[in-house]
Design a protein around this nucleic acid. Sequence first.
DNA 1: TAGCCTTTGAAGCGA
DNA 2: TCGCTTCAAAGGCTA
Length: 435
Amino acid sequence: MPQLNGGGGDDLGANDELISFKDEGEQEEKSSENSSAERDLADVKSSLVNESETNQNSSSDSEAERRPPPRSESFRDKSRESLEEAAKRQDGGLFKGPPYPGYPFIMIPDLTSPYLPNGSLSPTARTLHFQSGSTHYSAYKTIEHQIAIQYLQMKWPLLDVQAGTLQSRQALKDARSPSPAHIVSNKVPVVQHPHHVHPLTPLITYSNEHFTPGNPPPHLPADVDPKTGIPRPPHPPDISPYYPLSPGTVGQIPHPLGWQGQPVYPITTGGFRHPYPTALTVNASMSSFLSSRFPPHMVPPHHTLHTTGIPHPAIVTPTVKQESSQSDVGSLHSSKHQDSKKEEEKKKPHIKKPLNAFMLYMKEMRAKVVAECTLKESAAINQILGRRWHALSREEQAKYYELARKERQLHMQLYPGWSARDNYEKKKVRSLHTR
DNA sequence: TAGCCTTTGAAGCGA
DNA sequence: TCGCTTCAAAGGCTA
């Protein structure tokens, strides 16, 4: 497993996956990623994925430059000309490039100076400094700092963390992703498009409302307010920006990214009986989160949101049971129904497995891939995402491994007795029948 | 309408 | 310990 600290960690991925990146040079990785959308789209559009293809014609130099040799994307090299032709065709129509300027490439922190005098990052500079490589990662003193910054960019893909560009992008954000905008304005979001809900929302919900629009650009100290210049408390190295709260302590922990000492986790403990002991503040962000993670009928109206009792995304209330109960109201009151209802009530809510690193990555990038191409089938999208996952640099992958690790840690804290076996056995019966 | 497809990673389980 | 299996998300597709 790759580790942020270089070894001995728990679960940052397979070493064999990352070894190949060590000698390939991340610069090529970045460059390849820049064009990965076109190639991915071309691949998918031409033939989705033909796993049976061989590497007989894989001697393309340009291809070798863009892709790590160990990752023999066998299907990629076949009919390269046709793929390029397909890409050209799509380039003129279907493929329009990333709809979000600088995203996801902006996720790559760069300490060079592609920024405009006002601190913003010119679109051209974004591309250029993206292609210039990632050697500046070393400028970050700690991986956690890096993750925190990247997290800000992940949380709001449309939000240019560079100070000064916020207004120019506000229109775009408002039009396509209300999350940054409404958080900025502290207004209640009206509609949260599922595709633009940040996939890491489950994590964010534990620390939402803390990322104000003036998040410092990566090249600025994270603890300085880019607007006011007021230094902010640095991120405590021992507290995760994603899971800083633990039962009983969350109320006293000011979020490291919080502003002017604002309590980030206002905790109300009264009457909380949910498996999640840490009462989560329900606000605009949470409302959006609920809308995206739960069926509409499960999402209470915003005005009824309470500061407690918010289910964790991992908890799936048996909606079918609820619907069936509602449909039976006033119709049947047989004892059989009542018995089954009691049994259902006794059943524990379905606690889902915590998402792994790739799942987190998929959730984040799915909307982008869908936006770049017209594909909507998850099977095809996942193929693209799987390849992009392998194309990620170690740092980028480590970011998701770290998120997944924290997700599991939180999951363990919230559900001490939960085991993957609980869900495993439920579907095992079905699988035995179907497979 | 349930299940499949497709991806990676975590976890469980049996040998 | 190793290898296999299941599940997590997602949405179109299929029987």
